[in-house]
Amino acid sequence: MPKQISATRRSSVLGLLTAASLALTLSGCASYDVTTPADARADAAPSDAKAQDAKAGAGDGAVDCGKAKCVALTFDAGPSENTNRLLDILKENKAHATFFMLGKNHIAERPAEVKRIDAEGHELANHTWSHKILTEIKPDEAKRELSRVQEDVRKITGKTPTLMRPPQGRTDEEVSKISKDLGLAQVLWSVTAKDYQTTDSDLITKRVLDQTKRDGIILLHDIYKGTVPAVPGILKELKKRGYTVVTVSQLLSPAKPEPGMVYRP
């Protein structure tokens, strides 16, 4: 029997069918678990919350997104020739992001950038090896698409990603099962600049700012020419509007990413 959604806060798969990028093919009563960052925090075990409180008291810069007006910043499909400049900008603005990285022609060709992403406190995450649509390939191939990135990131940094973003946001029950087996939570988004359609940095900035709300997840790509030049303006205006820019895991904290779960604002 397919796994049914296990909490009242978790919306059905049909609730995801609001964007073309999430054009899922449903079969029978198949479903998978999905929740929002805010609901994940609310559902966190009391022990997790106490641990987070203790961590925050240690003066290490921990953020309580239950109190702060947080938004997660994410970048897909890198690292690329633009990544070092992006990392410079993030450092200058004391901001951290989650990098959903591709393997072929990216991680495999730019291990130095992967190391730098990790060394500077950003979050390493998985965007498959070659950007194949996971719902359109056989389960064994989908597993290889994810596991190859896991292995390469571990070899380079000694760390294994706990988050993945399915290409085009397309997931289903089988992909969720594979993700769970590999220890990966799935992360979708609420803000997209469609930076693959334009090199206009001002337009990219406007699209992000127009869509951003508390507990949102911003999707950008550091592989496109207009994106990285837009980041300083995005960060400046988000700060002006009272947002704290965080990684996905910081947005979920004190909850821990649950393997197989789909997180979407």
Rank of each mutant, 00 (worst) to 15 (best):
D64R: 06
K3M: 14
A44S: 14
P37R: 02
L24E: 04
D33L: 06
P37F: 01
K50C: 12
A54R: 15
S27W: 10
L24A: 08
S11C: 10
A7T: 12
I5N: 04
D43I: 00
V63T: 07
S31N: 11
D33V: 02
V34H: 10
G66R: 10
A38N: 05
T35C: 05
A40G: 06
S27Q: 12
A20L: 05
L26N: 10
A62D: 14
A40R: 02
D33G: 07
D33C: 06
V13P: 00
R10K: 07
T36N: 13
V34M: 13
C29Y: 09
S31D: 14
S12R: 07
Y32V: 07
C65N: 06
G15M: 10
C29S: 15
S11M: 11
G66M: 02
D33W: 00
A20R: 04
D64H: 05
L16W: 13
A38Q: 14
A7L: 11
K55N: 02
A30E: 15
T25G: 08
T18Q: 07
Q4L: 07
P37A: 05
V63N: 00
G28S: 06
I5C: 06
A49M: 02
A58Q: 12
V13M: 15
V63F: 01
A49K: 11
R9A: 13
L17C: 15
A42P: 02
G66P: 03
S12Q: 10
Q52R: 10
S31Y: 01
A51R: 15
D53W: 05
S47H: 02
S31W: 02
A45C: 02
G28L: 05
V63W: 00
A42R: 07
V63I: 09
L16V: 12
R9I: 06
A20G: 11
